[in-house]
Amino acid sequence: PDNLYVASIYLLRLGRSGQVKKEEAQQLAQQILKKPVSCYSGLRPLLQFYRKYLSHNEAIDLADEALKRHPNVRYLKKQLANSYRWKIFSKEDSPRRQSMCDRAISLYTDVISLYPETSLKVKLELASIYAESYIDRTELANQIYENLLSSEQDPYELQMLYFHYATYKNFHIQDRNASIDYHKKAAEIPNPNKYGKMSFNILRKIEQWGRNRRCAEILEFLENLSSHNE
């Protein structure tokens, strides 16, 4: 298709069936790089294709090339930071892991400092990179979460925040009780989005495993929640 955004979406869908050659993706990338930057340029879905069907490194290289051509564009900084984040969370062994964390942190920090209205999601992504860094940056992650917890009021956003904070408390701080508390906070917000539902399902699994001393409490909570939603 002539529309590069549509072409990227189409390529991403074709990738699931293995019908796309690497050269086709690279050709589309060159076309996108020559066009003015916008969220509908096709870069974002193409980066998804690169991550899923080529490699994280090639996705990073593509995002980096786009940013080199337009070094002051916030959207491209976010795309490159996100590409690093996916590589870091892939758990692929890499001697460059810490340098990638540092680069991602620098990009995220730059975006947030220049644009204070940056979305909650971007701030949570920065907190997640702090938590993954080999250099102990727990205090910086904690600070982000504390600031967000004291200021966020939108129910939809709160579910996302509580879910991510619960995950952080569980995997990085090993505070299982706090993790359960925040999953409960996410799950009990009316009209749950995917984050509230994921928290509900995690609580259900904890209760079903039967290994946590709070299983009875969790079961009662889930039953009460289910009865209110009927």
Score class of each variant (00 low, 15 high):
87 K>F: 15
88 I>K: 09
88 I>E: 05
90 S>L: 03
90 S>A: 10
92 E>M: 03
92 E>R: 08
94 S>K: 05
95 P>Y: 06
95 P>N: 03
95 P>T: 05
98 Q>G: 00
98 Q>K: 08
101 C>W: 11
103 R>Y: 00
104 A>I: 03
104 A>Q: 13
106 S>D: 11
107 L>G: 04
109 T>K: 15
113 S>Q: 15
113 S>E: 15
115 Y>S: 14
116 P>D: 08
118 T>M: 02
119 S>Q: 10
120 L>Q: 14
120 L>Y: 10
121 K>Q: 14
126 L>M: 13
128 S>R: 09
129 I>P: 05
135 I>E: 14
136 D>H: 02
139 E>D: 06
141 A>D: 00
141 A>R: 09
146 E>S: 11
147 N>L: 00
148 L>Y: 12
150 S>N: 08
151 S>W: 01
151 S>Q: 07
152 E>R: 04
153 Q>K: 13
153 Q>F: 09
155 P>S: 01
155 P>M: 02
156 Y>T: 04
159 Q>T: 03
161 L>F: 09
164 H>Q: 08
164 H>R: 05
165 Y>T: 01
167 T>I: 04
167 T>L: 08
169 K>P: 01
169 K>R: 14
170 N>Q: 10
170 N>G: 00
171 F>E: 14
173 I>K: 14
174 Q>L: 12
176 R>S: 11
178 A>M: 13
179 S>R: 03
180 I>V: 07
181 D>W: 14
182 Y>F: 15
184 K>E: 11
184 K>M: 12
185 K>E: 11
188 E>R: 15
191 N>T: 03
192 P>M: 04
199 S>Q: 02
203 L>A: 11
204 R>C: 05
205 K>F: 01
207 E>I: 01
207 E>Q: 00
211 R>N: 12
213 R>T: 08
213 R>F: 12
